[in-house]
């Protein structure tokens, strides 16, 4: 079975968010980039399923410029077999979805996995767009994924519960915990990753449909108002009379 795992390259969780002086772009200066934490669930689960099947391949796909390659190598070190990088900045969800759909179609992948959303843009859009472009089912967000032959059984989170869904390959799933315990690379993986194939392809498809006009930071908090523990009941009065939330 051929697994395609889509990863994004995102600022590390602890990054202090700042923008270029015109507020049109994220300021990458001095920022450490990581594999999107949600995508780690997709990657590890694909590797686990491949191992359980005793065959098949896991291909990792990233839409990004050359500076994303360290994290693509990291994904290879975690256990993917080969990688494809579409050589373009990820302009918007639709643009990225077209690149993924194109690679998926050419490679005839059976299972296309990605994280629920990226922690930078928080779009939660790409899964459905890829599914629709390819005319195949999407399951989002998936908390559990098991395969039996060509049939996948998934748990999809819905507000207030979950649905048990069965789909046949090919399909798209956007993954979240508790699907698996994401793996970290070991020394052997890091060594072998250096020589695994990483193919670079040029983007195709239509123009993006959205553009960021401006980024802004949220207004600063006023600072915390502390209430002495022995007077805890006072907090409830403040929440009612001052903050007006209860």
């Amino acid at each position: 079975m051929k697994f395609l795992v889509c990863i994004s390259n995102v600022p590390d969780t602890t990054t202090k968010i700042a923008f270029t002086p015109d507020n049109k772009e994220f300021n990458k200066a001095g920022v450490q980039f990581v594999i999107n934490p949600w995508d780690e669930y997709a990657l590890t689960r694909a590797i686990e399923l491949k191992e359980a099947q005793g065959g098949g391949t896991v291909t990792v796909l990233n839409v990004g410029e050359a500076d994303t390659e360290p994290n693509i190598r990291k994904a290879l070190a975690i256990g993917a077999d080969d990688a494809i990088r579409v050589n373009a900045a990820p302009k918007d969800a639709f643009f990225v979805a077209q690149q993924i759909a194109n690679v998926a179609k050419e490679g005839a992948y059976d299972v296309i996995l990605m994280g629920k959303e990226s922690i930078d843009y928080n779009g939660f859009q790409v899964h459905g767009m890829v599914g629709e472009l390819l005319g195949i089912p999407t399951v989002a967000p998936a908390m559990k994924l098991d395969m039996s032959g060509n049939t996948a059984t998934l748990e999809r989170e819905i507000e207030g519960g979950k649905e048990i869904v069965q789909v046949n390959t090919p399909f798209v799933a956007s993954c979240q915990q508790p699907m698996c315990e994401p793996r970290i690379p070991n020394m052997r993986g890091i060594m072998t990753a250096r020589t695994k194939p990483l193919k670079v392809v040029e983007p195709t498809g239509d123009a993006p449909r959205t553009a960021v006009a401006e980024y802004a930071l949220p207004p600063k908090k006023q600072g915390v108002k502390l209430i002495p523990a022995e007077n805890a009941g006072e907090l409830i009065k403040l929440l009612r009379n001052e903050a007006k939330v209860i």
Partner: peptide, 12 residues
């Protein structure tokens, strides 16, 4: 955007 750490004005 940025997991609640920023907002983006997006042109559709």
């Amino acid at each position: 955007a940025f997991s609640g750490k920023a907002f983006a004005d997006v042109k559709l």
